[in-house]
Design a protein around this nucleic acid. Structure first.
Length: 431
RNA sequence: GGAGAUGUGGCAGAGUGGUCUAUUGCGUCUGAUUCGAAAUCAGAAGUCCGUGAAAGCGGUCCGGGGGUUCGACUCCCUCCAUCUCCGCCA
């Protein structure tokens, strides 16, 4: 949510920001509602003030044993008018808020202009030099990850589809262990080297939490919902972990607060049928470690760079070829003021796969979730940031396609080996 | 799931229809005293909305929402959370 003051004091700033994004909002309607709302508010406060005076007078008269009928009549009349004005006010405020919740964040000044993902800026490319020759060296094309996985028995899409549906893969044997190794490595590394506190959150949240981080009301159709309890399956640990501190005033000395949380992530992916529906590229359920940070507003952009580096380090340790994109205004997520995407290269797919999105939301989520801090005696909203660090499916794809051995096996990156019981290579089954 | 109890400021804890402008204690901040501190004394302090250049002024807030009433911390309904006991169950 934007600072409501902007709608009356800096409408042009909103207009400009929304234009850069290509977002359409009926700003004039909102501005007018705000003006009307304040007018009613002034009247309402006057009426209430009058009623308070009259009520006090009644109390005094009654205590003195005198007749207060005149004042009682007065408050009765005032009460009726207050009720009428209050209804008007509440209605306006509700409608204004409903609209305000649908207004995206304004892009930071540094974000490059653009209309779509085609306009994103590549700011960095990190090419890993393989320790041993993978398949793909000497002009031999590496095998597709689905083939490698099948040959090594790492996952089972068919049975996942049988028990649940497409987009719900099963990891099997060393495949399951490899995925778990990644998650453990990510978590342990963040805690040991990046100063994060590990969080293990609920995977199901209430509506208020979904509104707090910005998934609702706009993206309802993307969420799995449990009707009986009116709860939502989380699309990312960002939701529970950010909302953890909802309606709190955080101690300024404790900032930045940094969390790393593993969760399963559930996404209906409504409207994406046909796009990457095969394999690992678009799943309804996957596992991810999410980094979440609550920052002093003054330093949130340094924190943003830090989170990006945290995610990058993991890819480097895994020996993967990746690049960093700075998203343009048109490709920015709903709540983000600025965002980096990390994309890993899949040599058989021959394409870049997004494995992390690192965003600074500034006070956009903090306003919705009411997360504040007091700095130098002044109450203010914190800045929230988050980034994947990392989501496993596409990282696994890149691993499978990047670390093949000449014998058709898979080299396990050194950092994962301790989590694999020392297994350094997953070898093909003997025929 | 059943029965009961509780929810008040940073914390503890009074308040059962009208000086509640929320008692009191602890803690916090400021000042006095002191060489300095402790102790003591005096004072101050919250949120959000509106208004105003500002000082200030008005409104709002006793778990959330709704109701009764001229008036609600107080009465009623409902939801949520916590606690106790019982039942069930990883």
């Amino acid at each position: 949510m934007l600072d409501p003051r902007l709608y009356r004091e800096e409408v042009d700033k909103i207009r400009h920001g929304l234009e850069r994004r290509g977002a359409k909002v009926d700003l004039d309607a909102m501005v007018n509602m705000d003006i009307e709302k304040r007018k009613i508010n002034v009247r309402l406060d006057q009426l209430k003030s009058e009623r308070n005076v009259a009520t006090e007078s009644i109390a005094k008269l009654k205590r003195a044993g005198q007749d207060a009928q005149a004042d009682i009549e007065k408050t009765r009349t005032l009460g009726d008018e207050i009720k009428a004005q209050q209804e008007k006010f509440d209605d306006l405020e509700a409608r204004f808020k409903a609209m305000a919740l649908l207004v995206p964040n304004l892009p930071h000044a540094s974000v490059p202009d653009g209309r779509s993902s085609a306009d994103n800026k590549v700011v960095k490319e990190w090419r890993h030099k393989p320790a041993s020759a993978p398949a793909g060296a000497d002009g031999v094309k590496p095998k597709h990850h689905l083939d490698v996985g099948k040959e090594l028995g790492l996952f089972d899409f068919e049975r996942g589809a049988k028990i649940t549906g497409s987009g719900f893969p099963i990891f099997t044997g060393l495949g399951a262990r490899l995925e778990r190794a990644m998650l453990n490595f990510f978590l342990d590394f963040h805690v040991a080297h990046h100063g994060f506190t590990e969080i293990s959150p609920p995977f199901v949240v209430n509506k208020a939490s979904m509104i707090g981080t910005g998934q609702l009301p706009k993206f309802e159709e993307d969420m799995y919902h449990c009707d009986a309890d009116d709860l939502y399956l989380i699309p990312t640990a960002e939701v529970p972990v950010t909302n953890m501190h909802g309606n709190e005033v955080l101690d300024a000395a404790s900032l930045p607060i940094s969390y790393a949380a593993y969760s399963a992530c559930f996404r209906r992916e409504a409207g994406s049928w046909g796009k990457d529906t095969r394999g690992f590229l678009r799943l309804h359920q996957f596992n991810k470690v999410e980094m979440v940070q609550f920052s002093d507003p003054a330093t949130s952009y340094q924190a943003h760079e830090f989170l990006r580096e945290c995610a990058e380090t993991l890819l480097q340790k895994l020996g993967l070829h990746y690049r960093v994109l700075e998203l343009c205004t048109g490709d920015l997520g709903f709540g983000a003021a600025k965002c980096y995407d990390l994309e890993v290269f899949a040599p058989a797919e021959e394409r870049w796969l997004e494995v992390s999105s690192v965003s600074n939301f500034e006070d956009f989520q903090a306003r919705r979730a009411n997360i504040r801090t007091k700095i130098d005696g002044k109450m203010q909203f914190v800045h929230t940031l988050n980034g994947s660090g990392l989501a496993t499916p596409r990282v696994l794809v890149a691993l499978l396609e990047s670390h093949q051995t000449a014998e058709g096996g898979l080299r396990v990156p050194e950092v994962l080996q301790p989590y694999m019981g020392g297994v350094a290579e997953i070898k093909p089954k003997k025929k």
